[in-house]
């Protein structure tokens, strides 16, 4: 253990209003949810923060609310809760699957959706699913709250729209009914507890033999989780019996910008991202 708990202070608000006030007064405080991301660099002595804002007790940030048109998840919704939710299983299976492959059970018991987003890792498992479902985020500070499209949230490697005095408070998904096409696949060398080398999530609606709607998102192939908008444009409106595969693959290569790192190579990520797209389209348009 190389972290130094004796130098660290923790602010523990009992409700959201108190949390926002503390954060406004101490914008340097690092919000701490379930700890599954932050405790790793902390224990390794690689986390510079000395002041933490403990969100764990904020009941306002928990719970999944379903209305006719939307599902709203509190930022502290745990992966385990997502995995077990019947409506999410039916209507947002990619999110459920990505929650179920985020670490193993002990991680899913503490890790939260809001924490996963705020941590900003390009390799995080749930962001591609959220992007494919067109999620929106509620960002809240003493100044008020605002909803932003999740697709706009990440602005670079570990950078985002979140202001120092803001917290992610809710995640909203529009219900698209059943019957859409859902695809999620994570590639991580190992079959469990792996950090993604490439992941791809897609949601599509096919009508009259054509792709009517398509959202395609990837992890671990750019400085942040990304929508593959160029690829989406190529495929949008195309007949599923005659998809422009080569053009789509070329567009995908332009959408992504993977690097070599400890876990894989840029070449592998490019090739496998393409393979996943082909695999996805094979599912969308079975021969």
């Amino acid at each position: 253990m190389r972290g130094q708990p004796s130098l660290c202070e923790v602010l523990t608000p009992l409700n959201l209003a108190e949390a926002l006030a503390l954060l406004a007064a101490h914008p340097e405080a690092r919000p701490l949810a379930g700890g599954t991301d932050l405790m790793v660099p902390f224990a390794a002595g690689r986390l510079p923060d000395r002041l933490f804002l403990n969100l764990w007790d904020l009941e306002e940030l928990r719970g999944i609310v379903v209305t006719d048109g939307e599902v709203t998840l509190g930022a502290l919704t745990l992966f385990r809760e997502i995995a077990a939710h019947p409506l999410l299983q039916r209507e947002f299976p990619n999110l459920v699957r990505s929650a179920m492959v985020t670490g193993a059970l002990a991680i899913q018991s503490r890790g939260s959706l809001g924490g996963n987003i705020a941590n900003g890792s390009p390799a995080a498992d749930t962001p591609p699913s959220l992007l494919a479902y067109g999620a929106e985020l509620e960002l809240t500070s003493l100044r008020g709250s605002r909803w932003v499209p999740y697709a706009d949230f990440h602005t670079g490697y570990k950078r985002s729209l979140l202001a120092p005095d803001e917290l992610i408070t809710r995640i909203r998904l529009s219900r698209m009914g059943e019957g859409g096409f859902h695809y999620f696949r994570k590639v991580g060398t190992r079959q469990a507890q792996a950090i993604a080398k490439v992941s791809l999530a897609a949601w599509a609606r096919v009508a009259d033999g054509r792709i009517q709607d398509l959202r395609l998102a990837l992890g671990s192939v750019a400085p942040m989780p990304i929508r593959a908008k160029g690829t989406e444009r190529i495929l949008q409106g195309q007949a599923i019996r005659n998809l422009p595969l080569d053009a789509a693959l070329a567009a995908l290569q332009a959408d992504i910008s993977p690097i070599d790192d400890l876990r894989s190579s840029a070449a592998f990520r490019r090739k496998v991202a393409g393979n996943l797209l082909v695999d996805m389209l094979r599912g969308l348009a079975p021969t």
Partner: peptide, 22 residues
Amino acid sequence: EGECGACSVILDGSLVNACLVP
């Protein structure tokens, strides 16, 4: 770092890695 599970405990009915809980 929450990988090996040797520190697994049951905390309020949840399985957790004690190394990741402040």
